[in-house]
């Protein structure tokens, strides 16, 4: 086989793998996370990433007074439980799903608009010798008027 044939062929294979991995979280988010919003209107924003066991992510968002919100945070089945907490600007914890059996959704409303921080953490499987699991984690917001 000549290099002139190998390189384009390899590039095609690499592209196919890359595209598949890129699209992986979008399909997961639409199929697994979106339904968790129930009768709340999805805001249309997309937040998803491949996270590894033990990895942490943060999300900053302004929430408005007198709106009813639902946040849904879902990880792929191959991941351990997804822990998330919601904090105010001074890092006071307003909610932690760890105290609610790692619930994937939380419904809330605010009396005063403010910016909140969500800390999302993929817990660990307690298998120190094995390669850590990885998979998509999706965060979605829904609201009601």
């Amino acid at each position: 086989m000549k290099w002139t044939k190998i390189i384009p062929l390899t590039a095609l294979i690499v592209l196919a793998f890359s595209t598949s991995a890129f699209g992986q979280c979008k399909a997961f988010a639409k199929k697994q996370c979106l339904p968790e919003l129930g009768n709340y209107t999805h805001d249309g924003n997309y937040h998803a990433a491949v996270l590894v066991e033990g990895e942490e992510a943060e999300l900053y968002k302004t929430f408005y007074s007198d709106m009813e919100y639902r946040v849904a945070i879902v990880g792929e089945d191959k991941l351990p439980a997804i822990e998330f907490s919601v904090m105010d600007a001074n890092r006071n914890v307003l909610y932690s799903n760890k105290e609610h059996n790692y619930a994937s959704t939380w419904d809330f409303r605010l009396e005063a608009s403010q910016q909140l921080k969500l800390v999302i953490k993929v817990t660990k499987f307690n298998a120190a010798d094995e390669m850590p699991a990885n998979g998509c984690v999706s965060i979605m917001f829904g609201f009601k008027m």
Binding site: H47, A49, E55, E58, T62, Y64
Partner: peptide, 12 residues
Amino acid sequence: AEKVFNALPSPV
């Protein structure tokens, strides 16, 4: 590792 999402209000 730290992944940060900055979420703006969507057009909707």
